Amino acid sequence: MEPEKVGTYPALVKSGAGYFYDEVLEYRVWLHPERGAFRRNGGNDYFVAFAQYERALAFSQRSKGAEEPLVLIRQSRYVNEPIPGKFEVVNGERLTEWQVQWLVGSKRTPGAIERFLEEHKK
């Protein structure tokens, strides 16, 4: 993670998927004015970015209209599942938001994708 880049990534990114991640870029807490968050950004939803999960979690717990933190990740090689049970390897950069718990065991390491494909053969 590059702390100086936290908060500079695009707001609109992919959501979920890919099974593997290469880098954690930031943690995001999305705020919703219709649920009591401070109104800014024309009353649209917005996020506050953090370099540390613990700080994002504390902020989300004390802020009205806040969701639990999400993590913004970078994927450079990942597994796509266009239809259930059909897996394909994709090479190319993609930014996506994940639920934080999906990070566990999902860091792409040498051979991880190949092992995944072997384990999920039909």
Rank of each mutant, 00 (worst) to 15 (best):
T96P: 04
A58G: 09
Q61G: 14
V71S: 12
D22A: 02
Y19R: 04
P82C: 03
W102Q: 11
W30T: 15
A112I: 02
F116M: 01
R94M: 04
K5C: 05
R28S: 11
E68N: 10
T96N: 07
L117S: 01
R115M: 10
P33D: 08
L12F: 08
K107A: 11
Q52C: 04
E118W: 02
K86G: 01
A37D: 00
Y53L: 15
A66E: 09
P3M: 00
A37K: 00
Q61L: 15
E97W: 01
I83C: 01
E97L: 11
V29N: 08
L57S: 10
V90L: 03
G7P: 15
T109E: 08
G65D: 12
G7F: 10
E93P: 12
P82Y: 02
I113M: 01
L70P: 00
P33E: 11
D22Y: 02
L72A: 13
E81G: 02
A56I: 06
I83W: 02
H32S: 10
Q75Y: 06
L57K: 15
T8P: 13
Q101W: 05
V6M: 04
G16C: 05
R39N: 13
Q52F: 08
P10R: 06
G7A: 13
T109D: 02
H32A: 05
V79F: 06
P84I: 06
E68A: 10
E26K: 03
R39F: 05
L70E: 14
Q52N: 13
L72C: 14
S60V: 14
L31P: 02
A56W: 02
R108M: 05
W98M: 04
L12W: 05
E93G: 13
V29T: 10
A56H: 03
P110L: 03
R28M: 05
E81S: 05
V48R: 09
L95M: 13
S106K: 03
L70N: 10
P10Q: 08
E93Q: 12
G16I: 03
V13I: 13
A56V: 07
G42Y: 07
E23L: 05
G42A: 03
N44W: 07
E2T: 10
V89K: 14
R74N: 07
E118V: 12
E23H: 08
P69G: 11
F87T: 03
V48Q: 12
F116N: 00
P3I: 00
E67P: 04
E81Q: 09
V48N: 01
D22E: 08
R62K: 15
